[in-house]
Simulated scan of single mutants.
Amino acid sequence: MRTRTKPALKPNTLKQYEAACERLKENFADFEPREVLQRHVVALKLHMAETPNMSNRVISVLRAVFTYALEHQIVDSNPCIGVRRHLEHKRDRYITHGEFQAICANSSDNMRAIYEMCYLTGQRIGDVLAIRLADISTDGIAFKQEKTNARLLVQMTQDLEELIARVKALPRKIRGLTLFCSPRGGKPVHYSSVKDAFAISCRKAGVEDASLHDLRAKSLSDTDDQGNDAQKLGGHTDAKMTQRYLRLRKINKATPPRLFSTLDKVSN
């Protein structure tokens, strides 16, 4: 199954699928493929109801596994057919400027630079960690987005220029090919390290319900609020996709009706 699907999946998607597979192993370790019935899949779905996104991903992976097994005559049916997905609520968490400053203040110099690069470029964390020194020019930073393969040049600004200079000045025993690398070995920084460090920084800063992915939403939201093109910065071909990231909603102002007693006084 892995060798068949791996070439068609992006690295980040593959990691998510592998995490889903671990959850499946925990729940179906004692089952033979033909023993898994629809009621077992439904039970798993309900068991994971508190994490609907992960639950949906796990069921999707299980559905793909049984599709493969069905095609190879390992099973006679796919027990995932007819099992509906959880309704996934849209995340609307917006990290304020004060919260972002507090998070950065409670971070190491290395991690702070990564968070700030996520914000200034508006790119996904995987694309930020993959920035090579060769991708940086006086024009800006060139990206080829891992998820969409879209090419994008984030134009150089004074903030970006100063941040890049600060990153290059960080102490390194070995300088790697990527802008961000481990202080000792010079290897690219791993996503899980940044994710864990961000959670620790948030806890120290007293910032709740914030995730590393909220930095991209903050960047695109602030870009839109400042009158710039958030869709271009996000690398989206569809404006609807950009709207999913915008979390600075304009507040509608409405005039309420007057009380009847007030209307009587005016008429008299």
Rank of each mutant, 00 (worst) to 15 (best):
A43M: 04
K232H: 14
K204A: 08
T242P: 03
S77N: 15
H190T: 01
H213Q: 01
R172Q: 11
I125D: 09
G185A: 03
C21K: 09
V194Y: 01
N268T: 10
L163P: 03
A102D: 02
K218A: 15
A134E: 12
D76F: 09
H190V: 03
L24P: 01
T5E: 13
H72L: 00
P183Q: 02
G126P: 08
D224I: 05
T242E: 05
K144N: 00
N53Q: 11
A134Q: 11
G140L: 00
I125G: 07
A197E: 06
Q155P: 03
L153D: 01
H86R: 01
L259F: 14
C118W: 13
I103F: 02
Q73I: 00
R249P: 03
Y68M: 06
N228R: 12
L87K: 14
E22Y: 07
K15N: 07
N252Y: 00
N27F: 07
T255R: 02
K90I: 12
R216N: 04
V83P: 00
I59L: 13
R166W: 14
T223Q: 06
A150C: 04
S221F: 10
Q243N: 12
P171E: 12
R258G: 11
L62K: 05
A199H: 06
Y191N: 02
D135E: 08
Q226W: 11
H213F: 04
L170S: 08
L46T: 15
D225H: 11
T223K: 04
T178C: 09
L263D: 10
A102F: 00
E35P: 00
A105Y: 06
L212D: 01
K168A: 13
V207I: 06
E18I: 05
R175A: 05
L133Y: 10
K10D: 02
T237M: 08
N53F: 15
A105S: 05
A49W: 10
D229L: 01
F66A: 03
I164T: 13
S261E: 15
H190Q: 06
C181R: 01
P33R: 00
N228G: 09
F180E: 09
A230I: 09
S60G: 15
H190G: 00
F198A: 05
L87V: 13
I131R: 11
R93Y: 14
V167K: 12
S219D: 06
D30C: 00
F100E: 02
C202V: 02
H236P: 10
S201V: 03
G98Q: 14
E18R: 06
S267Y: 12
L163E: 07
R247I: 07
L179G: 07
S182F: 03
L37W: 10
H236F: 12
C181W: 02
A134R: 14
L44K: 03
K15R: 14
P171N: 12
